[in-house]
């Protein structure tokens, strides 16, 4: 029986003690982002559905709560991710500014949780950096955003953070050469997300993928571990041209810089990690902590964002759920 006081599945609320903690963390985070040169935006809760679901939002359709606007008859969506909103604002309102740094913090709503038993109303916090391509002096922009993610976890008091790094360029180089149909690529994407090697061999056989490419695909599922993965990748994927070399070099630079700034931080590499996002184009990263079976914060490069709003440019960013940070952190 449903009682009147019950909340819908996955909806979160904070009672006084918890709410003050959340507010304390919100202030600390926004102060920190501001000091780092990030401008705060407060995007609307409700937008036209089509603008929420373009570009970086293309995977969000089934996650988005929808309703019809009685005034215009158009379909509206409740935001399920603030990244596409930040991309829209950067394209529309900062078209003349070559480099834009934005931060945001607010509740988003999802029709289903990201993970089993997870919230449907995470309080998303994040930073996005538009207009700076990869590379640019010791992997500048990627490193800046990655450092902000680590700062966020530190400010939240999350101990024993583990960093996971990947680069979509490696996957793209291997997959582009296969020239798959959209449907087959979706299947391959799903198989790689699960690192299902048995299914990968069946897939390669069914599609008649040549032996060399099949070996590269299988190798991809094994290219994870410590820094030595970079050497094995360079050897295994040497026939895949400059984009792989470039991706591995970016990773090397980022690892060297992170090791300098955060000595002792455990770094794990995974060159087949796709994080469920199809829009990533370069370096991707996530943070994990013991006692939590899934990632705590995630981010990466998604160049070309904003084109639908009239201004395509390089972008990189990260986001996390403040409520989850509070659960795992001491702040």
């Amino acid at each position: 029986m449903t009682k009147l006081w019950m909340l819908p599945d996955g909806m979160e609320e904070a009672l006084p003690q918890q709410a003050w903690r959340a507010e304390g963390l919100r202030r600390a985070l926004l102060d920190h982002y501001r000091a780092a040169g990030y401008e705060l935006i407060l995007p609307p809760f409700l937008e036209h559905l089509d603008s929420l679901l373009t570009g970086a939002g293309a995977d969000l359709d089934s996650l988005t709560f929808k309703l019809t606007d009685p005034a215009s008859g158009r379909l509206l969506g409740l935001r399920s991710d603030m990244t596409p909103q930040a991309a829209r604002i950067a394209a529309r309102h900062f078209a003349d500014t070559p480099v834009v740094r934005l931060c945001y913090l607010g509740t988003v709503l999802r029709t289903r949780p990201d993970a089993l038993g997870g919230p449907r109303s995470p309080r998303q916090v994040g930073c996005e950096l538009f207009g700076m391509p990869a590379g640019g002096g010791a992997a500048g922009a990627d490193l800046e955003v990655l450092s902000l993610m680590l700062d966020t976890l530190r400010l939240a008091g999350v101990a024993d953070v583990h960093l996971d790094l990947g680069h979509v360029g490696v996957y793209r180089a291997v997959v582009d050469r296969l020239a798959l149909s959209a449907e087959d690529e979706t299947t391959l994407f799903d198989i790689l997300q699960r690192k299902s090697r048995p299914e990968l061999s069946a897939f390669a056989t069914a599609l008649g993928i040549d032996a060399e490419a099949a070996v590269a695909l299988q190798a991809l599922t094994g290219l994870h571990g410590d820094v030595s993965v970079l050497q094995s990748a360079a050897a295994t994927l040497s026939g895949y041209g400059d984009s792989v070399v470039l991706a591995l070099r970016t990773l090397e630079q980022v690892i060297a810089a992170i090791a300098r700034q955060h000595p002792g931080l455990p770094i794990h590499l995974d060159l087949a990690e796709l994080r469920g996002a199809r829009y990533h184009t370069g370096l991707t990263f996530a943070a994990f902590a013991p006692g939590h079976g899934r990632e705590l914060a995630r981010g990466g490069r998604y160049d070309g964002v904003g084109g639908e709003f009239g201004m395509a440019r390089p972008a990189t960013g990260f986001s996390a759920d403040v409520n989850e940070l509070l659960r795992l952190g001491a702040a």
Binding site: G225, H268, F288
Partner: peptide
């Protein structure tokens, strides 16, 4: 039957799980 692995464990307990 398949062997399955938690994604976070694969990253944090990598050496032993590998």
């Amino acid at each position: 039957s398949r062997l399955v692995v938690n994604k976070a464990s694969m990253k944090m307990k990598h050496a032993r799980i590998r």
